[in-house]
């Protein structure tokens, strides 16, 4: 190891299918790199401490809080932000459902809610139980309202749009 420790590095990030080359101070979180360096401002900073879910992105399809991972440690993942989930004219079914059900008021938590919900549906598909699943040893779970609420509890909404957020997700599940 060198005498003087390097505190910045060339960093390669793969975001929404595009490769980016940056040079970043190791202290830069993935959230700050996305917002400040890549101009992908869909991911929001609510608490910066893992307590709100506004910064939720997907790492290799799995939801994660971008505020608690340093960009330097995120280089091995394929990152998906809300900008990679859908776009105007080509909305993801969950985005359309949030519009149809008024699943938002100010909209600040919404990108995180939607990224979280996309990955959450994949977790259900994979048969993952949750804290409200009566028998964790049993097979697939039915994503009812209480399962939806528990699985989405990592995303807070200051406007309290929860009822409509749950309705939007339930709509997509069918």
């Amino acid at each position: 190891m060198p005498e003087r420790v390097a505190t910045l590095s060339p960093i390669r990030l793969s975001v929404n299918g595009r490769e980016y080359q940056l040079e970043l101070d190791h202290r830069t979180t993935l959230l700050d790199a996305l917002r400040e360096n890549l101009d992908l401002t869909g991911s929001k900073k609510g608490c910066d401490h893992g307590q709100c879910g506004a910064c939720t992105v997907m790492l290799d399809g799995r939801r994660a809080n971008a505020c608690l991972i340093f960009a330097v440690a995120a280089q091995t993942h394929d990152i998906t932000t809300i900008e990679g989930v859908g776009a105007a004219g080509n909305l993801h079914p969950l985005q359309q459902a949030f519009i149809d059900h008024d699943g938002l008021q100010c909209g600040y938590c919404t990108p995180g809610q939607i990224c979280s919900a996309v990955a959450m549906l994949a977790e259900v598909e994979a048969g993952w139980p949750s804290a409200v699943t009566p028998d964790v040893a049993a097979g697939p779970v039915d994503l009812d309202e209480s399962e939806t609420r528990e699985r989405m509890s990592g995303n807070l909404c200051r406007c309290g749009a929860y009822v409509n957020i749950v309705a939007a997700i339930q709509d997509v599940v069918g």
Binding site: L59, R63, N65, L68, P129, S130, A131, V136, A137
Partner: peptide, 23 residues
């Protein structure tokens, strides 16, 4: 884990959030 040590699966699921447990 779910079948042989269900309390362990439940304890982990009772902690933090889906995002945090993935990390």
């Amino acid at each position: 884990v779910r079948r042989r040590y269900p309390a362990l699966a439940q304890a982990v699921l009772a902690g933090a959030s889906g995002q945090l447990r993935n990390m």
